[in-house]
Simulated scan of single mutants.
Amino acid sequence: MRTLVLGGIRSGKSRWAEEMVAGEPSLCYVATGAAADADPAWAHRVAEHRDRRPASWSTVETTDVAALLRVRPPTATLVDDLGGWLTAALDRRGWEDGSVAADVDELVDAVDGFTAPLALVSPEVGLTVVAATASARRFTDELGTLNQRLAQCCEQVVLVVAGLPVWVKPTKALN
């Protein structure tokens, strides 16, 4: 079961995803955020996430999510979050004119082929004003496209608003 968990900043999407997978016997938590060395506020957010994780979960800090999903034994996995992954891809390819299409294709293919339970946490950027800067518009455009592609290959899509799930694509009952 692949689940895309969308939500705004501080919507509770990460916590909701963590609760969703909490019953898995083993779990790999994939953290995609940048190191928090220079920014105390960011370091505090990262620490909050780390402190919530059970000691039994393994943690991998990487932005090469596709490679990890392809080589990992089929173990339940939570990726938090795809905004960090996209930022790293744009940093590598170039914010002004570099294409992340191949990176997106690679990630979507890896997600589509992943056979263990998978939760993908991603910011929902489509509920706000159009950004004033070119780089922010680029980020929202690319993330919107990524979220749409992942929603197609995930069995479930949920939007978390104020900590509550709104099911966008619930699992279909088997007849």
Rank of each mutant, 00 (worst) to 15 (best):
R2V: 07
T3W: 14
L4S: 04
V5K: 11
L6A: 05
G8A: 13
G8S: 06
R10L: 07
S11V: 09
S14Y: 07
R15A: 14
W16V: 10
W16K: 13
W16D: 05
A17T: 08
A17C: 07
E18D: 10
E18C: 09
E19Y: 09
E19I: 04
E19W: 07
V21Q: 06
G23D: 14
E24Q: 14
E24C: 14
P25T: 08
S26I: 02
L27F: 04
C28L: 15
V30H: 05
A31Y: 03
T32G: 08
T32L: 01
G33C: 11
G33F: 05
G33L: 04
A34Y: 00
A35G: 11
A36K: 04
D37V: 13
D39E: 14
P40F: 03
A41S: 13
H44E: 15
R45F: 03
V46I: 15
A47D: 13
R50E: 06
D51L: 12
R52T: 10
P54H: 12
S56I: 05
W57K: 11
T59F: 02
V60A: 14
T62P: 12
A66M: 11
A67R: 12
L69R: 09
L69E: 14
R70F: 02
R70E: 15
P73A: 15
P74K: 09
P74E: 13
T75R: 09
L78K: 12
L78Y: 07
W85A: 05
W85N: 08
L86F: 08
T87H: 04
A88N: 04
A88V: 00
L90C: 05
D91A: 12
R92Q: 10
R93C: 03
R93H: 14
R93Y: 00
W95I: 00
E96D: 13
D97W: 03
D97Q: 09
D97Y: 03
S99V: 10
V100F: 00
V100P: 00
A101D: 14
D103Q: 01
D103L: 01
D105K: 00
L107I: 02
V108F: 01
V108K: 06
D109L: 13
D109E: 14
A110L: 11
G113R: 06
G113E: 10
G113F: 01
G113I: 01
F114D: 06
F114T: 03
A116Y: 04
A116C: 08
P117G: 10
P117I: 10
L120M: 07
V121N: 05
S122V: 02
V125T: 15
V125Y: 00
L127W: 14
T128A: 15
S135D: 11
A136H: 02
A136R: 00
R137G: 01
R138T: 14
F139N: 02
F139K: 03
D141Y: 01
E142H: 03
T145V: 15
